[in-house]
Write a protein that binds this DNA or RNA. Structure first.
Lengths: 225, 225
DNA sequence: ATATATTTTTAGGGTAATCTAAATTTTTTA
DNA sequence: TAAAAAATTTAGATTACCCTAAAAATATAT
């Protein structure tokens, strides 16, 4: 069994988490530039860090070829994601933060190292399966099963779906959803779709109706009833 | 009004916290060597950091003269202490950690920057006034009033006192107290004191009795009933 | 009061993570 | 497929924090 207990820095953990998220379910190669954008650093800095992560056996890296996580890197990334999402649940459920307010704080809390802390936090929260944005929380063994949500753009007219999550976590978007009474678990019925710009007329919880742009539809994760 | 919102690093915050604790209630000068010992670094490194903290207006520093916190430095230190103690309450009261297990984790959590987080955590915990070791928690305005506890060595024979806190936070000491059923709030009656080594025979909660060494007595904070 | 011991500071470096600018490799396009 | 464009890497610095060794200041002791 390979040890996952080595110490990774705050910065290394962030790279791993971002590589995980950018490489998606299929584990595609992630480019240096994409990482530079996501880490808000310069490509040259990314190259330096990639060499380091490769030396530690956390990524597969060949010059000019992009990177993928190794199994070890994946484990570390998933641990960080688990911590991030559990802390988000804590902040929303226990401390009363809004779902638009918790990202930056969880970004800090996710790097607190204690394993036993994570497990006790998980138990305290009642082993939640999803975070406040609908993202699945990896279990303590590191199993992360992404539910196969639809995007609202894939829903046909007069279908009713359950709102399950968001792709964009930006506060401005989440606040817009709050103002529109679109919350996790609400029922969305697509009443009309405008052919020209794909904006839609939807009904929320069989009650109020509103227009939403394609940009909004693209960022709403839903499930058929 | 002077801003206290500038960003201080993890390391800077630790120095301020340690200076606060070493300079005591009277705000005595703290020596470079004492700081080197408490920060587990070399005296030369301490000198570097002291120059930096002085430039930021956080400490009063004259070469070879030792340091004191400025009002600003005191404010920052007290904020860190507030966070540390609130997180310790959370870890013990909500997550079920023992009082001997929480120090290192709180040492990390205390540097999470959000002010809102601290205030919401404080409210969630019910505005506790003391941490799990009996140390007072500064209020949101930064007022820290150290209660005037006695040390058990100052208690006379046949006096009954209330156990209020510990001076030594070492896990080994706290575990010894657990095994001896000495907990915050228990009643301690001094039955006998050995003239030679000042070890004492005490009764806990009017129930079981035990011998404790001077070393133990020196680290128990108590209050007359 | 002067020599000795201790404490503290300075000088000169090292590492992690970042940067800019230049060089190199890969990709795209004509 | 060769030239141009884009992406990536290398080279050389910078900042924060830490180090060792040596110098300087202060404290102690005879």
């Amino acid at each position: 069994m390979v040890s996952t207990d080595m110490q990774n820095s705050f910065t290394e953990e962030n790279y791993l988490k971002i590589i995980h998220s950018l490489s998606g379910r299929e584990g595609l190669e992630v480019s240096t530039n994409a990482l530079a954008e996501s880490t808000a650093t310069r490509a040259a800095s990314v190259t330096d860090m990639l060499r380091k992560l490769a030396e530690k056996g956390l990524i597969h890296y060949k010059k000019y070829q992009g990177v993928r996580l190794t199994d070890l890197g994946e484990k570390v990334a998933i641990k960080v994601i688990r911590k991030h999402r559990l802390w988000e649940v804590f902040l929303v459920e226990k401390l009363g933060f809004g779902w638009d307010e918790v990202h930056d704080i969880a970004e800090e809390l996710e790097h607190i190292p204690s394993e036993v802390l994570v497990e006790k936090l998980d138990a305290f929260l009642g082993h939640p399966r999803f975070d406040p944005h609908g993202d699945p929380i990896p279990d303590s063994k590191g199993n992360l099963t992404e539910p196969d949500y639809l995007i609202l753009t894939d829903v046909h007219i007069s279908e009713k779906v359950l709102m399950m999550g968001v792709l964009d976590h930006a506060p401005a978007f989440l606040q817009y959803l709050d103002r529109s009474n679109i919350t996790l678990g609400c029922i969305i019925e697509v009443k009309e779709i405008n052919d020209y710009d794909k904006s839609a007329f939807v009904q929320i919880n069989d009650a109020h109706t509103l227009f939403i742009s394609l940009e909004v539809s693209k960022n709403l994760l839903v499930q058929r009833l």
